[in-house]
Design a protein around this nucleic acid. Structure first.
Length: 413
DNA sequence: AATCCACAGGAAGATTAGGATA
DNA sequence: TATCCTAATCTTCCTGTGGATT
């Protein structure tokens, strides 16, 4: 019986209670160690409850410092209070990575305010200033105070969208708009239109990274909801917190690490998550990350990477050090690209691509001098070449260069 | 001390791709 | 739809250089 299958599977569910709690999309009820930020933001929003427009705010902070969570949290509370007090307060959240053009921004804000389906603004077809006048009309009909949050504001293309929004209040008679800009790029405002800059930056907030101790609290907090009691061995949370704090104090990273650790444990049918799972998870996350990077590399860099692997293997076969020079790699690269029927780039360009791969951390390349025998870079592959090949095997543009050598071995050419 | 290898890496111009604009 | 603009790529040409060898 089908139900029996699921019963036994559910029976085996010994680790998670609710894994959603650990996902990045989850907005928690409480935000430990952000009490001060919450209060400051609430102070700034407060005038909205008296029907006045709050100052525009600009919020900075690295990823995973709670900017979005705090803003959404305070916004939610504000809406709640507004309802209680019978005040007309709107709170609109928008992620500029998704909504990244002038038109789409205005359109989306307007559609948040328009209830009737037939009046909604289509995502194409209207001139931008028509969308703007419909937006002002919608705002005025709604009245009251509207707070618009622009998350990842640095992803917005062009700054006329911001310019329009910062001066929208002068075209409104009954309503008021306040803006909240969120960015993880501190330099973002530097090359912004000065008028926008001063108007948006009426208030500034900075979110500092969490330290290990704080991350630990956050993890414990979430773990209570996410896991069955006793599913974690005691050292797991401190370890996750310490590892994430070493990076950038990124809470998202810490939560990811915890979730992946638990998923690995679950997959092994283990009854509890141990330190070993965390180490494994760290490795897996790292690997997934480089896999993403390698997949998104331009074709020429992929060929170059395979050329390096081939050269490295050749070196090893001859019992030499697995490091190579620019010239050697370039020769291999010429061979491989010819075999693929792809135009080869010049050595100058390849030298730059080598630097890029170095910066991405896939290889290490440092300049050395071999005296009489010239100056070059010493290149070493710092990611498992077996993993790289595994990834590129699924890439139709370069996998003609990879052949199966039996026993799970992959050979090149 | 002088030489010279095998490139590094800067400058400038050409080519290309994507996006905005008329 | 044509064309114009811009940013990213890529080439060509170049000067510079650490240190083993002579």
């Amino acid at each position: 019986m089908l139900t029996d299958i699921f019963d036994t599977l559910l029976e085996r569910e010994t680790i998670f209670l609710d894994r959603e709690v650990l996902r990045p999309t989850y907005t928690p009820e409480e935000l430990p160690h952000r009490e001060r930020e919450i209060e400051t933001l609430a102070q700034i929003f407060l005038p909205a409850l008296r029907g006045e427009a709050p100052s525009n705010i600009f919020i900075y902070g690295k990823t995973g410092t709670g900017k979005t969570a705090v803003t959404k949290h305070v916004g939610k509370q504000l809406m709640k209070k507004g309802e209680e007090m019978n005040r007309n307060v709107n709170f609109i959240y928008m992620n500029c990575e998704v909504v990244d053009t002038h038109y789409r921004l205005l359109q989306n804000i307007a559609n948040h305010l328009i209830d009737r389906w037939e009046e909604r603004i289509p995502f194409t077809g209207l001139p931008t200033d028509e969308v703007y006048s419909r937006l002002t009309k919608a705002l005025d009909e709604k009245g009251g105070v509207t707070i618009v949050v622009l998350d990842e504001i640095d992803k917005l293309k062009g700054d006329e969208a911001l310019y329009t929004l910062t001066r929208i209040n002068s075209d409104l008679s009954r309503a008021k708009v306040s803006l909240v800009g969120i960015s993880n790029d501190l330099k973002f405002t530097e090359f912004l239109d000065p008028r926008v800059k001063s108007s948006l930056g009426e208030e500034n907030m900075i979110f500092y990274p969490y330290d290990a101790r704080q991350l630990q609290d956050i993890l414990e907090h979430r773990a209570k909801k996410a896991f069955r009691p006793g599913a974690l061995s005691p050292s797991v949370i401190p370890l996750c917190a310490a590892l994430a704090a070493q990076e950038h104090g990124d809470a998202r990273r810490a939560l990811d690490l915890l979730r992946v650790s638990a998923e690995l444990a679950e997959r092994e049918n283990a009854t509890r998550v141990t330190e070993r799972h965390v180490r494994k998870a760290l490795h897996k996350i790292e690997l997934d990350h480089v896999a993403e990077v390698i997949k998104s590399l331009p074709l020429q860099s992929k060929i170059l990477l395979l050329a390096m692997i081939k050269e490295e293997r050749e070196k090893k076969r001859q019992g030499l050090k697995p490091s190579m020079t620019t010239g050697e790699v370039y020769e291999r690269y010429r061979q491989l690209s010819k075999r693929l029927g792809v135009e080869s780039l010049t050595q100058r360009r390849i030298a730059d691509l080598i630097s890029e791969l170095d910066m991405l951390g896939i290889i290490t390349a440092r300049v050395i001098s071999k005296g009489r025998y010239g100056r070059t870079r010493e290149i070493e592959i710092s990611t498992s070449s077996r993993e790289i090949i595994k990834i590129l095997q699924n890439d139709d543009a370069v996998n003609p260069l990879i052949i199966y050598g039996g026993k799970g071995q992959m050979r090149l050419i």
